[in-house]
Every structure is written in C-alpha cells, then in structure tokens.
C-alpha cells in the first residue's frame, strides 16, 4: 500500500511551496465510495485547510451501492456549479488518474456546521431570513438549471430505474418484510409522469450542507451520487423523515416547511412541481434508506466491516417502515 500522507504532501509541495508548512493530514469518515482527507498547513502564520477526495483504496463492488462516479466528472460538475455561483467548494487541483494517488482532487475547506442534529438544534439558524428551507429551494433550483450538455459520461436514472435498482438489492437478501413489498407495489402503481431531465445532485439533504448560523447555507457537499434524472428526486429526499433528525413537524431537513422550500424552488428554477411526483419520490427515498440500512448491515454479515455500528444499523430499517406506512396511508401529515 502506498503511503498516502506522504504522497499528498509530495503532490502539494510540487504545486506550491506554501504547502511545505503542512503539519497535519487526517482521514475523515467519508461518503459511500470516497475518502476525505483534511490537510492543515500554515499560510502567513495562520492555520489553513485544504480537502482531498479520492476513491476508497479497497472497495468491492458488492459493498458499494453505486459504481463510483468518476471523480473527474464530480469535480467537473462542481467547477461548473461554482461558475454558476452555486455555493460549492472551489476545486483547487485535479489529480490525473495515472498519478500514484489515483484519480482524485483537492478542494477548498468550508468552515461551518455540517452535522444534521446540530443544524436543527441551532437557535440562530431558526431566525435566518430568508429561512434555511427557502435558501435550500433557491439553491436547488440553480443546481437543476446547471447546463450539463457539455459534460460527458453522465448517467441517467429515472424513477423506474431507481426503484428497480433497490428492488434488486432487497430481493438479493431474500428477506420477507411485508411493508417493503407493499411499498414497491405502491410505487409500481404510481409511477410519476416523465419530466424533462435535469442534473440531479442525488444526496441533497440535511447532513450534506454546510451552514453558518449568521448567513445560512455556505456550501453544498457530497456530489458523488449526481446523475441526470427527475428534479423531484432531490426535492423529496431532503424531506425524508430520516433526515429530519427528530424534528418530524419540520419536513424540510428538520428545519423548514414544505411551502417555503417549494416556492423558493419554483421561483428559482422557473419550473412547476408535481405533487404526485413528490409523493412518489418521498416514498422511494424512504424505502431507499431502509434498504441502505440493510445493505450496511450486510457489510457486517459478510465480514467486510465487523464494526458494532454496521451490525446495529440493520435494526434502523424498521424506522422507515413506519414512515412508509404513514406516507402511503395518508396525505402529508406535516406541511
């Protein structure tokens, strides 16, 4: 195995002598297919940070929910978003795939609150104007307006594609969880109308946003699940109860109301939303998270990751069952 810390330092110091002052390199817990490293260095005697993102050095296809998106596409989309004035970390260096570090990139470190439960508990965040839900809607409208025609090799995934992908995973486990079968059946009978494709972030939720208590959203992170698809996918995902961090009555990320979010979105994207599509995607999103919990438990069972939390997370799948039943049985309980 290559010594990644040394390679990172070697790469950066070749780019800029200011990196001779690097004094700490730490690996953080990352997303589903990427590692995140934080590098600390001194610039004119003040501490500065830069972020390094690369694929896991060891990942089997079975453990991965998606084939990892090429990091060059992720950084290209982030750079386009940055140009469109969407709050996103600035890409600093792209590392070529022939380099020992593998295809990867360095980006700006954004300081702020990222933990979902800290965001929903923050008093100042509650008083923001425009509120956080409106900010999320406005920014998402801009993301969905990103011109993607010149970006090569983007995958397309529709509601039917996403549903089938997760149904296959569920069926592979040969489990009999009637609420999941019922939810798949409901989805099959309520396929939303086809809409014009747009660039979908794929993991737009509380937990992947950086928030400052004085101005609100500073940055949108974790673009590794981006694809072309239905705009309602992102709009519903942030409302899935699993991302409300206990604040069930505030459907948008546990901090806001649907109307503020949808109105700001419609204004910024100039697109009208479809209520049936939103319901379809919120049910599919909830079901996806339930199946992801089982998938993470499977990493324990298969011996890939024998940690205490991989084992325990399987039991969190029942949380999504009550959310699914409530969504299917009723219209929105919380607006």
């Amino acid at each position: 195995m290559i010594d990644i810390k040394n390679k990172i330092k070697e790469y950066l110091t070749k780019k800029d002598t200011k990196f001779n002052s690097i004094f700490e390199i730490n690996k953080m817990s990352g997303g589903s297919s990427n590692e995140i490293w934080i590098i600390k260095y001194l610039d004119n005697n003040t501490e500065n940070k830069i972020v390094f993102r690369r694929h896991y050095s060891r990942i089997s296809e079975k453990e991965n929910l998606y084939p990892p998106l090429s990091l060059s596409i992720e950084s290209e989309v982030m750079a386009v978003a940055y140009k469109q004035k969407i709050p996103v970390p600035k890409i600093i260096y792209n590392v070529d795939k022939d380099h020992e570090l593998g295809e990867s990139f360095f980006m700006e470190f954004i300081d702020g609150i990222t933990l979902g439960n800290k965001i929903v508990e923050n008093r100042s965040v509650k008083l923001l104007k425009p509120n956080l839900a409106s900010q999320c809607g406005e920014i998402l409208g801009k993301i969905h307006s990103i011109p993607y025609q010149n970006i090569k090799d983007l995958n397309t995934s529709t509601g039917i594609d996403e549903m089938r992908k997760y149904k296959n995973i569920y069926q592979d486990y040969s489990l009999n969880i009637p609420v999941f079968n019922l939810s798949f059946k409901w989805l099959e009978k309520n396929i939303p109308p086809v809409t014009n494709k747009c660039l979908v972030h794929g993991d737009y939720r509380n937990g992947n946003i950086v928030v400052s208590s004085s101005i609100g959203i500073k940055s949108i992170l974790d673009w590794e699940l981006l694809h072309l698809g239905d705009r309602h996918e992102d709009l519903a995902w942030i409302c899935v109860n699993s991302w409300r961090f206990g604040k069930i009555k505030l459907p948008v990320g546990g901090f806001g109301l649907r109307n503020d979010f949808y109105n700001a979105y419609e204004q910024s994207s100039k697109k009208k939303l479809n209520k049936e599509s939103l319901k379809f995607w919120e049910i599919l999103g909830t079901l996806k998270w339930g199946i992801m919990c089982l998938k993470m438990y499977d990493a324990y069972k298969s011996g890939y990751d024998r940690s205490v939390d991989r084992a325990a997370i399987g039991r969190r799948s029942s949380e999504t069952e009550i959310d699914l039943l409530r969504l299917i049985d009723n219209e929105d309980r919380y607006e």
């Binding site: 109860n241 409300r244 206990g246 604040k247 069930i248 039991r315 969190r316 029942s318 949380e319 069952e321 009550i322 959310d323 409530r326």
Partner: peptide
Amino acid sequence: KLSIDQPNYSAY
C-alpha cells in the same frame, strides 16, 4: 417492532 428497535423514533 419499533417498541423493541427504536422507541424514541419521532414517527413512532
């Protein structure tokens, strides 16, 4: 199931 798995879950 939730009375065993997660009796503090918001929707429960």
